[in-house]
Design a protein around this nucleic acid. Sequence first.
DNA 1: AGAATAGTGTCTTTAAGACAATATGGC
DNA 2: GCCATATTGTCTTAAAGACACTATTCT
Lengths: 246, 246
Amino acid sequence: MIFTSEKDFLSNYNKKDYESPLLTVDMAIFSVDAGQLQVLLIKRSNYPQKDKWALPGGFVNLSHDPDLMASAHRKLVEKTGIQSPYLEQVASIGNATRDPRGWSVTVLYFALIDFKEFQKNATEQTEYSEWISISEAKTLDLAFDHLQLLNLAVERLTNKTRYTALPVSLMPKLFTLTELQQIYEIILGQRLEKKSFRRRMLEAGAVEETDQSKIAGKRPAQLYKYALENYDFHFPRTLEYPRENH
Amino acid sequence: MIFTSEKDFLSNYNKKDYESPLLTVDMAIFSVDAGQLQVLLIKRSNYPQKDKWALPGGFVNLSHDPDLMASAHRKLVEKTGIQSPYLEQVASIGNATRDPRGWSVTVLYFALIDFKEFQKNATEQTEYSEWISISEAKTLDLAFDHLQLLNLAVERLTNKTRYTALPVSLMPKLFTLTELQQIYEIILGQRLEKKSFRRRMLEAGAVEETDQSKIAGKRPAQLYKYALENYDFHFPRTLEYPRENH
DNA sequence: AGAATAGTGTCTTTAAGACAATATGGC
DNA sequence: GCCATATTGTCTTAAAGACACTATTCT
């Protein structure tokens, strides 16, 4: 068939003539609670892979989701009630075998939320969901290739924690530097030097003092807020692994 | 409908019951020639967007491509004849408006190849293609959202050039450090200090001497080869921007 | 006063930048 | 020997690590 114009071509085009894949968005929603990095998992209530733990996610709604990010955002709001989390695309996995229903592509996003904020917004869910620590989640028999997806998301988060201020997104608006450092240490699984950590945050202008302080037992601590426009900021060096003792 | 088992569910499942998106893979194939970073563009020979310049790419072949990477690799071989380039997924863009045919997702990959290797393997193409410098490509009226895709790929490449040895993939097997440095300078658009550059490559063990040297006019130069298992290696710091003169 | 947590001073270390000096081979 | 390009020496600088010290509040 020969077409004479874009319009002519389009009026003769029928999507159903071609094979299409399944398209899903899956979310690794992270939070820190009880001294551990946690991920929100759901228990699948339907086939396929019924009753297995899985990352929240599902089909992109082509009629209502304007783009992939919107689809990810919709799922996040459904599960957590949180409107403005940190949300980042990690990767897409697509192959003929990951879903028994056929050639399937999933676009993986990760989100960072403040656990306290989640508790405030918690809504009744149709599907059972639970916060599970990363270490435990990795031992579960997750649905589909979700273990691989979880690993990709965790790897992205830990890498970025080494050279960005991203973990601020796991905190409330105001936080102390000690609290922020603790979050870094939980994600990295490594102790950090207090002085280096504070100098780094302050000298780069990533955080700034507020006029408030937090009283929680002993000496009150200065409360800080995130001071940059966005989360693209990269520190000039990555945090090192602890040096050898000798 | 109630299903009693995974098998029962699958035997009743029909993909055509659900809407599916268009799925394409697009490639930013980079090379360096004539002192400039170049990208391989094709002139579209069919609707939609006929006669516009575009990144090579096209529909994932669900019957023959086992996964997304295989699809990207297939397109790369078709266009360049090169079997083992550096290939990395950049991002996926999916929305209702980028393609007039309907909700469309493209998975963007970038590839790095040695220009000389390309010339050796060049094959006749059905579609007209041409190497175009990045600066020129950005001024063209590219098809669909390919300008955005190109920008994403270039950004990924320049970022990684600051902290990895990736640009080695744009070189032949054996290369001199001066040649490698020139490639870095072209990608970054910035002069680098010779001593710092060599020290960095050598001390990290990213490259190692071979027993060959290259005679090209004046003093012969030592030929090196890439010495690491893969391209995941990160230098401990990023290359800096030139310091201020004062 | 003592304990506990917040916050600072300052020396060392690592790896990059700057730039001058030396080495090698073709002509 | 001269020139161009390759290669090295070495001082400076930026930012992180180590670790001891001071400050503030509660009990």
